[in-house]
Amino acid sequence: MSTGNLFPQISRCVAILALLATGAIAYAQDAAQKGLAIATEQKQRDAGWGDSQAEVSMILRNAQGQESERKIRIKSLEVQGDGDKALTIFDQPRDVSGTSFLSFSHATEPDDQWIYLPELKRVKRIASRNKSGPFMGSEFAFEDMTSFELEKYTYTYLRDEPFQGQECFVVEQRPLDEYSGYTRRVAWIDKNHYRALKIEYYDRKDQLLKVLELNDYKLYQDKFWRPMVAEMTNVQNGKSTVLLTHSIEFNTGLEEKDFDKNSLRRAR
């Protein structure tokens, strides 16, 4: 074959590659837009819940099969235009009973967090670089417990896929915060109600770290879906944590002043 014949072939290849590349970019744009659209819809459908109070058990399991239960109460307040506020009161284990934890989650800024220790009778601030760390020694990290805000991630729609018999969108979410413990999360969002049914968490070296499954969704106020059982399994170390919601009430009359540093001391 003479070289003269090669050039048209190469240029044809280049042309095809260029076409593919533009196609890929267009596809990527589509996927990003669709991902964001799904997340927006998800956030939108859950807007307006106001405030809530929940009684929750956190059941920790280790690879040996042992269990440990922590009992907490969570008071939450929806904040329009920013992350929500939450006050967590620890009831069990008994030796930390009366300890309470206040967090203001923010969409783009680091969260604010305080803890009140009854034995020291002091409120202590907790630095937010720990957001990747475990909450009460469980498999839930702080960042897994805070409210879902659109601005925290970039989105890519991956595919449609059923999960446990429900049609789902599978969306990849990449955290923007450098302190996040994850490179990405992959969420299964059901098409009917835009509820997260399953989330995979990938660690900083992009290896699957944890899988969260959300079950027993109940409908409140005819609009807000809440999972009664959320099980986080660490696939690397064999430990898991179940978050059991025993009860949850909405419109309990909580206000901003129930969520400040002084309210921490009063909480019980």
Partner: peptide
């Protein structure tokens, strides 16, 4: 109680890993 609360405070402050 003091020991338990120290530990809780410290645990809640540690990052991933």
């Amino acid at each position: 109680e003091m020991a338990a609360q120290y530990l809780l405070l410290y645990e809640m402050s540690l990052p991933y890993g």
